[in-house]
């Protein structure tokens, strides 16, 4: 376990969890102390629920561990589609550390970045800006008035497995757990069946303990025709729209090869500022 404070930020690492967090405001030292204490036992407690968390989600299951419960709450919304609570693990860890940071402390702003899945806290006049690593010139900007307090990214190129071929799906949702689960689900839906340029392998062949067992996960995506790219993106766009209408997410950005599309309500401010050279596709 590594717990380190540097350049005003707190770095927390234990096993697969890699967190960078920062708090702004007068109670920052207190908030950091609380986060350190909470983190010291976090993974040990979470692994106790691991067997159930790796199984396909069943609605209304109850967990005593708050992180496990966050994972359950976020992923059961997708039932009966296939998803395991593990799809929300990174976001749930981020959300729960953020809760510890802000509970009974005076802070103006805070964020917990767990390997790209970020949970944040804003007070009036505060904003977070996040540039997307996958598309350099796109910035997601969220201010106090927006509903979103979580951002997460999924895709086959990332650290997590994906059943789909999206290079990245970035989701803004009310919390990071939901953003994480939804990003996973949208990324899974960006797909082309039986394409020769797409190579997949059973998940457990790559990682023994994967919750995805023998499901085929993407390991390589070769050349695709423009029409194929647009069709695959359209699938993701449709799924994203359903989640948007059901109130699960607030925005999503889906990227595949040289194209991307944005899912969000017309009434909301555009949170993604596009200065990239990628081709934006508008589905009607």
């Amino acid at each position: 376990m590594l717990i380190k404070e540097k350049d005003n930020r707190l770095f927390l690492n234990h096993g697969p969890i890699d967190i960078v967090l920062e708090a702004f405001g007068k109670d920052k030292p207190l908030a950091y102390e609380k986060a350190k204490k909470y983190f010291s036992t976090l993974l040990n407690e979470l692994v106790l629920d691991m067997d159930l968390l790796k199984k396909e989600v069943v609605p209304h299951r109850h967990f005593n561990n708050k992180i496990s419960q966050s994972m359950q709450n976020a992923t059961e919304k997708f039932y009966p589609d296939f998803i395991t609570p593990m799809a929300a693990v990174a976001g749930s860890v981020a959300d729960n550390i953020l809760n510890v940071l802000v509970k009974d402390t005076k802070l103006e702003k805070a964020y917990v970045n767990n390997g790209g899945d970020v949970s944040f806290y804003l007070t009036e006049n505060q904003t977070v800006k996040s540039s997307l690593a996958s598309i350099p010139n796109i910035i997601a900007e969220i201010d106090y008035k927006d509903k979103s307090r979580g951002i997460a990214t999924s895709g086959w190129r990332g650290r997590s497995f994906s059943l789909g071929i999206a290079d990245s799906v970035t989701v803004l949702a009310d919390n990071a757990a939901m953003a994480d689960a939804a990003a996973t689900m949208i990324a899974n839906s960006v797909n082309i069946k039986n394409h020769p340029s797409i190579i997949k392998k059973p998940a457990e062949e790559i990682y023994e303990d994967s919750d995805l067992k023998n499901l085929m996960v993407t390991v390589e995506v070769g050349d695709l025709k423009q029409s194929e790219i647009e069709d695959a993106l359209r699938n993701g766009n449709e799924v994203g729209k359903t989640y948007l209408e059901n109130g699960l997410i607030n925005s999503a950005l889906i990227e595949l090869h040289n194209c991307f599309c944005i899912v969000q309500k017309e009434s909301t401010n555009l949170n993604f500022i596009n200065k990239s050279s990628l081709k934006k596709i508008n589905y009607v």
Binding site: M1, H14, G15, P16, L43, N44, V47, M50, I206, Y207, E208, D209
Partner: peptide, 12 residues
């Protein structure tokens, strides 16, 4: 190395 206790195959 950590509580996750991964079961790791050779080369993984």
């Amino acid at each position: 190395a950590c509580p996750v206790m991964c079961f790791i195959a050779d080369g993984k």
